[in-house]
Computed example of a mutant assay.
Amino acid sequence: MKDVAEAANVSVSAASKILRGDRSRFGEETCRRVVEASERLGWRRNLLVSGIQTGRTNTVGVMIPPYDSFWVKVLSGIHKRLGEADFLPITLWLGDLDHLPHFEANEQEGVRQINRLLDRRVDALILWPTFAVAYQEHLAGLAEKNVPVVVIDHRSDEPYGDSVATNESQATRAVAKHLLDLGHRRIACISSRESKSQTWALERRRNFERAISLKSEAEVRSWRLNRTGDNGVEVATHLLTDDFRPTAVFAVTDHEAHCVYEAAITLGLSIPGDLSVVGFADLDFAATMMPPLSTVRQRPQEIGERAASLLIDRLDGPLAGEPFVHSEIEADFVLRESTGPAPA
């Protein structure tokens, strides 16, 4: 900085202010000389020092794993929006990808990982549902310390931050209407574990059940996976051989829909001749399943961008000091070849 000031023939204090963006009190020619000198000499701002001076690091802890194509696109949206606002995302998750569904088994490790970011003075956090549960139960008091939080796909009875989710009611109504219009009246729903971190699954299933129940002659029954979520094919087999004998199945994610496909093949059922199947998420494998899966296409890129925008607005914009916001993103029904008229 001293070298830049000398080359531009200004004081060190003036050079520092100009390079921090505080240029209102200096002439255009002075600012030009300082900027040109800094570029010529290769000056770079010391963000550690800046953070000490301002109390801000312009870093955001993003605690979301690249679990599947949905979350990869959510991450893409977050990184895009944060980059536009000159925030640096620090992405962190727990364990390896093979064990992510069992996060609750080591919640204390999740708390430790959150604290790793807080100890590095990130300005805010974006959390996926299982990290949100750990934060809520152990660290929510930090909201009083001006560490804004945005949670994706998780609802809390007592909000401790902003949240972003898919509009489950709108999406499941579209699925229900599609199946009912095809004449299906015995419809099964296969849900995920519905653990305390999976409020999205509970909400998705309940909204679907509510939409089907509006048709008086239609009936819906629901099954869900076990605590660890590793018995999807077993549950699918059970629901397909139950006395209820559904003609259509709605799966709360494409992962469960894949399990229904496996069970149907084993039982000799054709899709969609004997059984219609609808998934949710439009994951990267949905279009290549045999037959291609009808599903709900979420908008993960938009969800990620919205989450980052909420944080930025909470830190520097119109949401500062305002009540927490819950933002819902619309979804789109994608018709493919896994659904057809109800069999006689």
Rank of each mutant, 00 (worst) to 15 (best):
D3T: 07
V10M: 05
S16M: 12
F26C: 08
F26K: 02
G27S: 09
E29H: 14
C31H: 13
R33V: 08
V35L: 14
G42L: 10
S50I: 04
V62G: 00
P65E: 12
P66L: 08
S69E: 11
W71R: 02
V72E: 07
I78G: 02
H79C: 10
R81I: 04
G83D: 15
D86V: 12
D96C: 11
D98I: 09
I114T: 07
D119H: 12
D123W: 06
T130M: 05
F131M: 01
Y135R: 00
Y135A: 00
Q136F: 05
E144I: 01
E144K: 03
S156A: 03
N167D: 15
A171N: 03
H178V: 01
L179W: 01
S192L: 09
K196F: 11
R204A: 12
R205T: 09
E209D: 02
R210G: 02
L214I: 13
K215H: 15
A218N: 15
N226T: 05
A236N: 06
T237M: 13
D254L: 05
D254F: 01
H255F: 10
E262Y: 07
I265E: 13
L275I: 12
A281G: 08
D282Q: 01
P292A: 12
V296M: 09
V296P: 00
D316V: 13
A320N: 15
E322L: 11
P323K: 06
H326M: 12
S327F: 04
S338F: 03
S338G: 07
G340E: 03
A344G: 15
